[in-house]
Amino acid sequence: MFKSTPKNPIEIKISTVVAISVILHAADRMALDAALKKMTGGVPDFFEGDLAVIDVGALPPASASIDWASLIGLLKSYRLNPVAVRNATPAMEQNIIAHGLSIDSGTKARDEVRPAPAATATRLPAAADETASGMKPSAMMIDTPVRAGQRIYARGCDLIITAAVNNGAEIIADGSIHVYAALRGRALAGASGNAEARIFALSMEPELVSIAGVYRTFEDGFSPELARQPAQISLVGDRIDILSVNLASRS
């Protein structure tokens, strides 16, 4: 592999960023401030300058025009960095742009014809945190055993591993985790908050699993039907559930 010097001083490419959706159900600054304070629990760096897309689609249409300067100031005080607004009415758009935010047209943009360099995107379910542009890298793939003390992090995508994950290893993904072998170490899916992420393994024997920050250890072992079987781990409400993916055991 060799690097060629680009002929242009600047290149424009389609890229992906991970952004937080800030879905407003009220426009009142005091109410929003109180809610954010409760959510962050007083931790000043709960959000670490994360990019934020403000979703105003849930606001009642009759609400007074939004004080964008005040809203931006409030989000920044909690270390969120608002960059765009989604589901705004056409009447709001000029005001939004005047405050330095972009309009995120959401699903409409994905249907547009893309120029040649863009790869086809794998569409994730809408419930997953969406990105500022329409594409995600499909998955990080690892084909060698993950050994004790090693840590793998698949940022912004799924993680697929075709060899064993040994005790003492740690695998992390913002998306789901798929292990086509034995999973014996720690697996943390939905690391950036995606509660829909799941963990799959051909032999589910992990030390610890976590989805969107909710974790579970298996100190009492696994039930006989699930021990060392193909299984999936998912987050149901606030509980980690382990289910078989073995067709033979489905009723």
């Binding site: 060698t144 050994r147 004790a148 040994n166 005790n167 003492g168």
Partner: peptide, 13 residues
């Protein structure tokens, strides 16, 4: 075995 696994990872890195 666990420690050997660890040292293998270190050799590979």
């Amino acid at each position: 075995v666990r420690d050997s696994d660890r040292i293998l990872g270190i050799i590979q890195a």
